[in-house]
């Protein structure tokens, strides 16, 4: 089990390294006149050249990549080209809100989609059809449209919730709740519907296996078969579904933060992208992938623990 975790951790760090290199090259290879963009059209050529030197842009790409990697190991990701704020601080200030939203969202998705998926798999009939139709709808409606519809209906027409977040450092719990309710609903709807359908399939696959029939033949009550045996057997598939869902949430939260003007990492990413503030963009990519690596590792450990072939060896 320990060597299993070690291997997964190593491959996660390897993936992070590869992604960092590729992203760095992609970002800096194609943008030739970064300094000119920052300084504007009026600046003299000399001033632009000076800016390029200041940012280290006059050095070869691989040298810059090397020094970025060395800094990154010490958690230094450079400074924003526009605000001069260190990227570490800029993201550090925005990340907690995003993480709170994403974690609440994935927990909600896990609970609701498991319930829906299991009910659909066991009861079939009407519950099953509802889950199927929901999955088609969720696949058809992009997250930003769900967000817009929620704003129109519950913030603008009904005025139950604020359309734009009122979160500030001094906000009280009630304000947080009011400001986050709609964004989180917008964030989870797609995930619930698509996960529910996949969990349903995983559950049905297990229900049709031979050992379920044998358990029934032994007189084990149906509830115990479902919740002790089948749920556990379907758990690895469910966890994989949820881990993919989590990766999707990191993207979905970018859109939702923009719609509701939430000051999270997603909003920071969009702003940095608009301005081509490459150090910040690079930082956001690294943080996101690092979060995914951690989540995937947790899922791997959970799956390893659930699988006696891995756990016992």
């Amino acid at each position: 089990m320990l060597s299993f975790i070690g291997k997964r951790l190593l491959s996660g760090v390897g993936a992070l390294f590869v992604v960092a290199c590729l992203t760095f090259i992609l970002l800096y290879l194609s943008s030739g006149n970064i300094a000119r963009n920052i300084m504007g059209d009026q600046a003299s050529d000399a001033a632009v050249a000076a800016k390029a030197r200041e940012l280290g842009l006059d050095q070869p790409l691989l040298v810059r990549l090397g020094s970025w990697l060395l800094d990154a190991v010490r958690l230094e990701f450079g400074k924003s080209w526009f605000t001069n704020q260190p990227v570490f601080q800029a993201i550090g200030a925005r990340l907690p809100l995003t993480l709170i939203m994403v974690v609440i969202a994935i927990v909600l998705i896990a609970i609701v989609s498991t319930l829906l998926g299991v009910v659909a798999a066991v009861k079939r009939g009407a519950a099953d059809r509802v889950v199927q139709v929901m999955a088609v709808l969720a696949a058809s409606i992009p997250g930003f449209i769900i967000g817009i519809v929620l704003v129109l209906a519950f913030a603008i027409r009904l005025r139950w919730f604020p359309a734009v977040s009122r979160i500030s450092p001094t906000s009280k719990a009630a304000e947080w709740a009011a400001s986050l309710t709609l964004p989180i609903i917008a964030l989870v709807l797609n995930g619930i519907a698509s996960s529910a359908q996949q969990i349903r399939s995983a559950f049905i696959k297990q229900l049709e296996l031979d050992y379920v029939r044998t358990l029934r033949s032994r007189g084990i009550p149906e509830k115990e078969i479902l919740f002790r045996h089948v749920l556990r057997a379907a758990a690895p598939a469910g966890l994989t579904v949820l881990s993919l869902q989590f990766i999707g949430l990191l993207g979905g939260v970018v859109i939702i933060e923009s719609i509701f003007a939430l000051p999270g990492m997603g909003r920071l990413a969009v702003d940095a992208t608009t301005q081509s503030d490459l150090p910040v963009v690079m930082g956001v990519v690294i943080y996101s992938v690092a979060i995914v690596v951690v989540v995937n590792l947790l899922v791997d450990i959970a799956n390893g623990w659930l699988n006696p072939k891995v756990r016992v060896s």
Binding site: A269, V281, V284, S288, V289, N296
Partner: peptide, 14 residues
Amino acid sequence: SLPTMIVLLAVRAA
């Protein structure tokens, strides 16, 4: 394991 949206943002920035 890459969040697609974040990657597309990076592409747009570049």
